[in-house]
Design a protein around this nucleic acid. Structure first.
Length: 251
DNA sequence: AACGTACACAACCGCTTCGTG
DNA sequence: CCACGAAGCGGTTGTGTACGT
């Protein structure tokens, strides 16, 4: 007996999401929360499978996502974390609030891998690709320095990781089972402060910043959406920090 | 201008893990 | 302990776009 498909694919849409679909999904989640992804498409009137909805929300629509390219410092941290954790993208992403595992994985595959290869480092093992070459060419200070710089940051990264574990941010909380309830509670708070604006305005005119419409959207509109999202996120973060404080106090 | 190629990233697939009865 | 379903995760593919010829 073969594996059962994750959903009944007959009549289900695939491929890139439209703004209207995004709109429906966000509107539904913010008003109802997430109980079961399987039921989301039906209840939200979407011709998608639950898995697709989940992915779209997590990787693109969540209000706490950070936009924009990863900085060089972030890249360095990813390299360090990858050296420690391997391809555990979800775990790595948990150290970068607002970044998704998919985003980091893609960035690794398209850029960081090449950067390391150019530096003469094997992205899989994090060791020099040709050890003999390095032994015989100690005068190549550029490459030696790059490797030294990258790998001597280990202690620095240990501190970074320890600090990151202490920060009360959604990704970290999601990664810890004992904080899941706290996060769920905070998500409800986020929804509460998020919903009114969407209820009043979303039906008519809000354009979400999707890849396909960002370029076409007027700068003012893009700014206002960003401000809107920032305010929602800071509202949720305040609640998260308060909750975490109480959690620590009474634990 | 038209075509081919490379690149970035969104989305999908299927396996694993987790929670529940 | 086992079976089952749902969610999570990482590898892979598909698609849009930028760039070169």
């Amino acid at each position: 007996m073969g594996r059962q498909p994750c959903c009944d694919r007959v009549g289900l849409k695939r491929g890139p999401w439209t703004i209207e679909e995004d709109h429906k999904l966000v509107h539904f989640i913010l008003n109802n929360g997430i109980q079961c992804w399987r039921t989301v498409p039906k209840l939200a009137d979407l011709q998608r499978c639950g898995k697709s909805c989940r992915l779209r929300w997590i990787n693109y629509l969540r209000p706490d996502l950070k936009r924009g390219a990863l900085s060089e410092a972030e890249e360095d941290q990813i390299i360090e974390l990858h050296a420690r954790l391997g391809n555990r993208w979800s775990k790595i992403a948990s150290y970068f609030p607002g970044r998704t595992d998919n985003e980091i994985k893609n960035h690794w595959n398209t850029r960081i891998k090449k950067r390391l290869q150019l530096m003469g480092i094997d992205p899989l093992t994090h060791q020099p690709i040709d050890k003999e070459k390095y032994q015989h060419e100690p005068d190549d200070k550029t490459e030696s320095l790059s490797i030294t710089e990258t790998y001597d940051k280990r202690n620095e990264t240990e501190n970074f990781i320890e600090n990151a574990n202490d920060i009360s941010l959604p990704n970290n909380m999601l990664s810890e089972n004992n904080n899941e309830e706290l996060w769920n509670k905070s998500f409800k708070t986020m929804s509460t402060c998020y919903s009114p604006s969407i209820s009043l305005e979303a039906e008519e005119s809000i354009n979400f910043s999707t890849a396909s419409n960002v370029a076409a959207a007027p700068a003012e509109e893009e700014d206002s959406v960003q401000q809107w999202m920032d305010s929602i996120f800071s509202c949720a973060i305040n609640q998260l920090e308060e909750d975490l404080f109480l959690l620590r106090k009474y634990n």
